[in-house]
Deep mutational scan, measured.
Amino acid sequence: MASQGTKRSYEQMETDGERQNATEIRASVGKMIGGIGRFYIQMCTELKLSDYEGRLIQNSLTIERMVLSAFDERRNKYLEEHPSAGKDPKKTGGPIYRRVNGKWMRELILYDKEEIRRIWRQANNGDDATAGLTHMMIWHSNLNDATYQRTRALVRTGMDPRMCSLMQGSTLPRRSGAAGAAVKGVGTMVMELVRMIKRGINDRNFWRGENGRKTRIAYERMCNILKGKFQTAAQKAMMDQVRESRNPGNAEFEDLTFLARSALILRGSVAHKSCLPACVYGPAVASGYDFEREGYSLVGIDPFRLLQNSQVYSLIRPNENPAHKSQLVWMACHSAAFEDLRVLSFIKGTKVLPRGKLSTRGVQIASNENMETMESSTLELRSRYWAIRTRSGGNTNQQRASAGQISIQPTFSVQRNLPFDRTTIMAAFNGNTEGRTSDMRTEIIRMMESARPEDVSFQGRGVFELSDEKAASPIVPSFDMSNEGSYFFGDNAEEYDN
């Protein structure tokens, strides 16, 4: 783990906690998980779902989305002020799938948001429990990260689609708070800032007046979040320049895209947490497990152990491969979309394939898809080993990566060399080191050039047997250095459309 220093740990961010010791953190995270579980059980009762239907990941996603929508204050306010045809701002819903006479049927349900809020609060001892809501947002974000390569979004903001390893959390809503900021990748933060800068260039009043003052505060806050992700002084200094700019424009845009590229080699610290679907927490609570009393951590053995003992089902389209669908969801559960496939294969105990080789589309089923041909199958979400999630980018030494994705962002704290394609990355730096950030740029390029592919990161860190909950005997895996390590390699994943 990167030293926490003055930073709060993510469990504290996750639970809005002030400084807590490890036991208190485990208890408050457990409380959050228990609340999600209780809410899910109650919703299944309301909807009269069978046990099997309640364990269907598509039903879980609909129920999670309903509660997130019920608590989305800004959108609710907007919907009330701008009524649109056929949208009731006070209601929320989605597809629920039921097994009827041996076939899967889709039923569109509609609930009062007020009623959903009441059920959620009741499951969370009367609190709004925003930490639990954020947790579900991060699960949705991790699922998107594993399912889609955001080529269009990258290109629109002047970045290269091969930089997708920097895009963790790119679909997280803005209201996801400190826990959300911690899991956002460098590219995601750059993209958010670039969008602001572009608006400022096109709209003279963007930075002016009372609204402009708020915009400015948001801009500086985002700059500080991004600065905190960088691990070298030169990158941090460049972020200070971007933040202090009187009138952010093209120079800042250039600096930010430069920094994003540099992060492929001088990786930023991005938190990883295993956020599971509500249909995993519900049955665990129903079986009598007391998360608050037992304590829970999002970055240790607990999620692995929970998945070892969970039964989750998914709808499967006619030509999809259930094992591939399982891999997709497994990666999402562990926030591992940008991790090295060699490491993932070792931990999972079966070969993890790149996205383009998977015969599976996303987990969600569109409303126009034919239910007649839908089957369902068990998702295999178990693992051979477990490993500690990392909050750091690993040290800054790398190795060759593949054509589709030119770097990785480690999820697990496991000893290995970190793949990246130096030639491709360095070719993108057209040696432009003039301007006010020239000395920093020169320094950053120097550090990137001296990074050695064969150097090892996370020295001495290994994986653990599932029986080793105290992480007492690390097993340090050895990897084939020459092997392909990137998930979005030469990829044809669908595009994420909101």
Results as ranks from 00 to 15, higher is better:
M481P: 05
R243G: 08
N124T: 07
Y10Q: 05
S310C: 15
R150E: 03
I138R: 04
G362E: 12
G94R: 11
Q409P: 01
S383P: 04
T396H: 15
N417T: 13
N498A: 02
L379R: 01
L298M: 13
S438I: 03
R106C: 14
D468P: 06
I57L: 14
P248T: 11
S345H: 11
S392R: 07
T396F: 14
L49A: 03
Y40A: 12
A472E: 11
F304C: 14
P354E: 08
E254W: 02
W386R: 10
I444R: 06
T390W: 04
V456D: 07
L61K: 02
A129P: 02
L79Q: 13
S50V: 12
E244G: 13
M189W: 04
Q231G: 14
K87M: 12
R213L: 09
E114I: 08
L68C: 12
G394R: 10
F458G: 02
Q415G: 07
R436Q: 02
S165E: 02
R199I: 09
R213N: 10
E80D: 04
R436W: 04
L266N: 08
M167W: 02
R221H: 09
R305V: 02
S482K: 08
L264F: 07
G431Y: 00
S457I: 13
K227P: 01
T433Q: 07
P283L: 07
K351V: 10
D51E: 13
R416S: 06
Q241E: 12
Y313I: 05
P410Q: 04
K229C: 07
Q231L: 10
R8E: 02
W207S: 06
E46M: 08
T378H: 02
K470W: 13
Y496K: 08
T45D: 06
S413K: 13
K184M: 13
E465C: 03
Y111F: 12
L315V: 15
K470Q: 09
I425H: 06
G169D: 09
I475L: 13
F464R: 00
D340R: 05
R391E: 01
M163Q: 12
I36A: 03
W386Q: 03
N498D: 05
E24V: 03
G228I: 00
H135C: 15
R246K: 15
C333F: 13
Y496V: 14
E320T: 08
